[in-house]
Simulated assay, not measured.
Amino acid sequence: MAVNRITLRDVAGACGYTVNTVSRALRGDPRLPESTREKIRAAAVQMGYIRNSLASTLRSGRSGNIAVIVNDVHNLHFCNMLTVMDSELRQAGYNIMVLCMGLNEELGEHLIRSAISQSVDGILYFPYMNNRSHIEIMQKNNMPFVLLDRRIQDIVTDNVRCDDRQGGFLAGVHLAGLGHKKYLFMSGENRSSSQIDRLEGFMQAMREYGIPESNIRVVPGEKVEAALADSTLRELLFPLDYTALVSFRDEVSYPVMLELADMGLEIPKDISIVSFDHLRGDIPYLPKLTSIFSEGQSVASNGVRLLLNRIEHPDLPPQVIVLPVRLFDEGTAAPPVK
């Protein structure tokens, strides 16, 4: 048998006030005496009353909810940003709704439509791939949104990301400056703008140091992800004809470091490693790893700020924030042994 929810009418009947007075009291209307507000709040708590957010949304046009659509909650890089966004949105009076597409583009479109159907006030969106149709859905529905961490080609909209091209360049300059001549580059998926930009920046550094492309073995991101899933990462590390390894993200670098150690190789004596995301900035008990990420400024904080501004000022021109990056040298890169 269905059990009916406690309503404003039930609370009004229990404490002897009109429905309108109960509604005003629970909204904290200062025109009502404090004793009246307190009596009504106490009755509502005792009865287990929960505000009907749908009715409130219909009245105000605001739900107080922000959807964050992320591609992989297993990735600590995204978890760290979710923590920041949750804290800052709550301070601004919003609840956070986290939706995970699980590296599935089709699910991503479904989640966007679901968030809009729930009348969220805005969307913080981590694009997984270069998918223009996802952006068009939000635009057609006049949904305030901000793209985070990556860009989508030929789309100009509110966007916060790190300077991935500069990051790739810094990785290349650091290793080439130490004297490395042969490299293994373990990619992310090539449909990610971060992968494209990081590799372009790295190859620019290689050209400036006169290192030929034949000295650089690039492992496609799809092979890297498959090897992680199948526990066959070691196969990608052979042949050991390189002295420096660049990894698209820390969550690949750490298992690579374990594999190299199991093979009897020392870092950085035998192989130097430079990575991206600097997870140790938020998780200091992780092993030291030379890694590249933004310093001080936060993709998450700037994304929240842009979205709240977009909600209040929907006609503003698009804002794009590209955060500078730096290399956090934690000792996993050194000159090659002669």
Score class of each variant (00 low, 15 high):
Leu199Trp: 01
Leu178Val: 05
Asn95Gln: 12
Ile283Met: 07
Ile292Ser: 06
Ser294Asn: 14
Glu235Asn: 13
His180Met: 03
Tyr128Thr: 06
Gln166Thr: 11
Arg326Gln: 12
Ser291Phe: 00
Arg27Pro: 07
Glu213Met: 11
Ser192Ile: 12
Ile137Met: 05
Thr21Gln: 09
Gln319Met: 14
Ile6Phe: 09
Glu189Asn: 15
Ala334Cys: 09
Ala43Thr: 04
Lys288Gly: 09
Gly102Asn: 15
Ala25Val: 00
Glu189Asp: 15
Gly172Tyr: 03
Ile69Pro: 04
Leu89Trp: 00
Val84Gly: 06
Arg51Ala: 12
Gly296Cys: 02
Asp72Phe: 08
Met47Ile: 02
Ser114Lys: 07
Met257Asp: 10
Phe185Pro: 01
Ile321Lys: 10
Phe202Asp: 06
Pro318His: 01
Ser301Cys: 09
His74Pro: 13
His180Ala: 00
Ser87Arg: 10
Leu240Phe: 14
Cys100Gly: 08
Ser294Val: 12
Val218Leu: 03
Pro314Met: 06
Asn190Cys: 15
Val325Ala: 06
Asn20Glu: 13
Ala226Thr: 11
Asp29Leu: 04
Gly303Tyr: 03
Ala300Asn: 02
Val304His: 05
Val45Ile: 11
Val160Asn: 09
Pro287Lys: 08
Ala92Asp: 06
Met203Gly: 13
Arg62Gln: 09
Asp164Ile: 11
His278Gln: 07
Tyr128Val: 10
Asp29Arg: 02
Val219Lys: 09
Val299Ser: 02
Pro324Arg: 11
Leu286Asp: 04
Asn141His: 13
Gln166Pro: 06
Arg326Met: 15
His77Val: 05
Ser291Gly: 04
Ala300Glu: 04
Asn190Trp: 14
Val45Ala: 11
Val320Ala: 05
Leu258Lys: 13
Val337Ala: 15
Asp121His: 02
Arg59Gly: 11
Leu107Arg: 12
Gln166Val: 15
Tyr209Thr: 02
Val246Pro: 00
Phe202His: 06
Leu184Pro: 03
Gly201Val: 11
Val320Gly: 01
Gln319Leu: 13
Phe238Glu: 14
Arg90Ser: 14
Val98Thr: 07
